[in-house]
Design a binder for these strands. Structure first.
Lengths: 199, 199
DNA sequence: GGTTTTTTAGCACGGTCGTGCTAAATAAAT
DNA sequence: ATTTATTTAGCACGACCGTGCTAAAAAACC
């Protein structure tokens, strides 16, 4: 009657909501169970331990980002302006709306926790490599192949995500877009002039 | 016989060591007291509560960054190349050696915690504004006055600090310096360009 | 000397945590 | 209908937490 996978997804969603609201230290079994409308024992039936629950949530986070990037790749057409494509793909990693703001907040808590948690650290490293990979690929399409440029772009994205998550009042989505646009148009080798930064 | 201020500093140092080693969630009164070689009651004699201890540590963190920036300001001479000055000042915020790597790790844990802790959030906002301020001032000396440029530079610094703290094996000090150098040399010259959609 | 203040130490309470364990309720299978 | 497996629920234990509180030890003061 009940799809176990769906249950697991529901519980993981509850983890995300709890973390977004109160930080990862609030993601206790009791809080998550309450958020999911279940008993602690029920949650533990699907996740053997607290650690396993958090790691499943971390993996789901990676999966969702991958899915969004893949969807973006489907959507674009050969004739599209590479600058616009880059801007849109990069935007998938940034808190430009409420939903992504929540996801970014969860991301920040997880990667910060990953520093002192080897198991989470592995997943966080995956995320980081993926971001640098996407950055490198987009830059390649723009005629830039410098690996330092990829690190540079990745750093801007991380920094914007961090700043916007911690101080949303001082780093609005418009400002984020402006910085991203500035970074892309400032690239060497890209000798074109695109239109407005805003979509 | 014992300087109370020195004791407070010692305890705060112990907080830093504990956080650097095991994350902010490990900064319990018991752990900090053990690290400082004191009893819990003794620590509580100088800090009325756990919260107060963490906030004192956060403020000390801000103070140290300020001190280092001020020291850098003293050291520079009128004839210095503004680019080199900028590179050195910005380097004060980055984990280029072991000591700063520890400080950056502590910084990351604190600002992440600040997202869901209003009291810490105020201090974190101070830090963020300070960084953007220094960035803006340095850019001004380089002939760049665009506020977006200041946000851009601040984002790069935050992103580099984040990346190097979480993945020191993939983001070496040399790479950090390369990215920073790239960012600074890539700045548009003294010619301030306003919005020129058409050209 | 004696007295007072500062500093250090530690006990004990209530609370929350993850988790081992048991068992009731529900669904599936025979 | 009976049996079996799955799912949900909850109790109880030990561990760790912050903190109120008391009191011994040390220092400062008279």
């Amino acid at each position: 009657m009940v799809d176990p996978e769906q249950r697991r997804r529901d519980v993981v969603d509850a983890v995300f909501r709890v973390v977004a609201r109160g930080g990862i230290q609030q993601a206790t079994l009791r809080n998550v169970a309450a958020e999911a409308g279940l008993a602690v024992g029920s949650v533990r039936h699907y996740f053997a331990s607290h650690r396993e629950l958090l790691m499943a949530a971390a993996r789901e986070m990676v999966r969702r980002v991958d899915l969004r990037v893949a969807a973006q790749r489907e959507r674009r057409h050969p004739g599209d302006d590479p600058h616009l494509v880059a801007q849109e793909v990069m935007g998938q990693f940034l808190p430009l709306d409420a939903a992504r703001a929540d996801e970014t907040a969860v991301w920040l808590d997880f990667v910060a926790a990953a520093r002192t948690d080897p198991a989470l650290g592995e997943i966080a490293a995956e995320l980081h490599d993926g971001l640098r990979d996407v950055a490198g690929r987009l830059l390649h399409r723009l005629g830039v192949d410098d690996p330092v440029a990829a690190e540079h772009l990745a750093a801007v994205l991380d920094g914007l995500a961090l700043g916007a998550t911690l101080h949303p009042d001082r780093l609005s989505p418009d400002t984020i877009r402006a910085v991203l646009h500035r970074h892309l148009t400032q690239l060497p080798g890209a000798a074109d002039e695109s239109e407005h930064p805003d979509e």
